[in-house]
C-alpha cells in the first residue's frame, strides 16, 4: 500500500458519516438489561444504503469517553483477539504482558470499570462479524455461576446484534421469524407447564430434543429466556393454550425483541 493510500483512507474515515443509531440502541439495551459497561463493534454490517459501512461501533458512556479522549482509531486488543474467532474470550486469559492490553486495562481500572470481562464474537447471516464486550466488575460477587452469566451474555449479545441489524436495514431480520411446527408445539406444551420429558414424548422425541426446540424457539422469537419467548409467542398469537394455532403472517409479527431481565 502506498503512503498516499493510508492518508487517503484516514481522510475518508474522518469524513465518514457518523450515525447515532448504534449508540441509541445501546442505551436502550443497557436500560433494559441493567448492564453498565458494554462495547460493540461490527464489520461488514448490511444496511439499506449502497455499500456497507467499514466499521460500526457502540460503546457504553465510560468507554466512549476513553475513545474520544484518546482519539483512538485502532481497535483494542480485545477486539483483535476476539473478532477472528468464534469462541468467547474471557479477559482473564489474555496476555497481560501485552503493553497495549496493559494500557487498556489500566484505563479501565482508572475509570472504575474493572479488569474482568468477556468478549463474545458474533457471526451474522449476511457475512458480518461483530464483537460484544461486557465488563464484569466483580465476578466473585455475582450470584449467578460463571456458566450462567456467560450464557446470559451470549444471549444478550445475539439479541443486541439482531437489534442492530434490524436498525441498520429495515429489510433484514432473521431468515425466519416464524416458528416451526415443532418449536410451536414445544412452546405450547411448555406454556402448559409440561415437563421436558412430557414434551419430548408428545413430539415423538427425547427430553433433550424438546429442550433443543425450545432453545431454537427462544432464539427465533428474540426472548431472553424460554419463559419470555412463551410470553412473546402468546402475545403474537403464534401459540394458543387451548389448541395449536397456525403461524400468523409475517407482517403481523412485531420485530422488537424482549429483554427485561436484569443483571449486573
Amino acid at each position: 500500500m502506498y503512503c498516499e493510500d493510508v492518508f487517503d483512507l484516514i481522510d475518508r474515515l474522518a469524513r465518514a458519516d457518523r450515525r447515532s443509531v448504534l449508540n441509541s440502541f445501546l442505551d436502550e439495551f443497557l436500560r433494559a438489561t441493567g448492564l453498565a459497561d458494554v462495547a460493540y463493534v461490527a464489520f461488514n454490517l448490511p444496511t439499506d444504503v449502497a455499500g456497507r459501512p467499514l466499521l460500526s461501533a457502540a460503546c457504553g458512556p465510560s468507554w466512549r469517553k476513553i475513545h474520544i479522549q484518546s482519539r483512538r482509531v485502532d481497535l483494542g486488543p480485545l477486539q483483535r483477539a476476539g473478532l477472528g474467532g468464534i469462541a468467547p474470550v474471557s479477559w482473564g486469559v489474555l496476555d497481560r504482558d501485552d503493553p497495549v492490553l496493559r494500557k487498556l486495562l489500566g484505563e479501565s481500572l482508572e475509570l472504575d470499570l474493572g479488569a474482568n470481562g468477556v468478549s463474545i464474537p458474533l457471526r451474522g447471516l449476511d457475512g458480518e462479524y461483530a464483537l460484544f464486550s461486557v465488563c464484569v466488575q466483580d465476578p466473585g460477587s455475582c450470584e449467578m455461576s460463571r456458566h450462567g452469566l456467560m450464557r446470559q451474555f451470549m444471549v444478550a449479545s445475539a439479541i443486541f446484534h439482531a437489534m442492530v441489524r434490524r436498525g441498520a436495514s429495515s429489510a433484514l431480520g432473521s431468515h425466519g421469524d416464524r416458528l416451526t411446527d415443532r418449536e410451536r408445539a414445544c412452546l405450547r406444551l411448555k406454556a402448559l407447564r409440561k415437563t421436558d420429558d412430557e414434551i419430548g414424548s408428545a413430539i415423538g422425541a427425547s427430553a433433550r430434543a424438546a429442550r433443543f426446540w425450545l432453545e431454537t424457539a427462544r432464539a427465533r422469537l428474540g426472548g431472553a429466556t424460554v419463559d419470555k419467548a412463551i410470553e412473546i409467542a402468546l402475545r403474537r398469537g403464534a401459540i394458543g393454550l387451548a389448541a395449536e394455532s397456525p403461524d400468523p403472517p409475517l407482517e403481523s409479527i412485531p420485530l422488537a425483541p424482549s429483554i427485561d431481565w436484569r443483571m449486573r
Binding site: 458474533l122 444471549v155 431468515h175 427465533r220
Partner: peptide, 26 residues
C-alpha cells in the same frame, strides 16, 4: 447465528424450515 452448512448448503433440500439459528447452538 452465521452461515452454516445446515442453513445454507441444504437450503434447497432441507425439510420444511429446518433452519437452526441460536447463539447457544453450534
Amino acid at each position: 447465528t452465521g452461515v452454516t452448512m445446515l442453513n445454507d448448503a441444504f437450503a434447497a433440500t432441507a425439510p420444511q424450515r429446518l433452519r437452526i439459528e441460536s447463539p447457544l447452538v453450534w
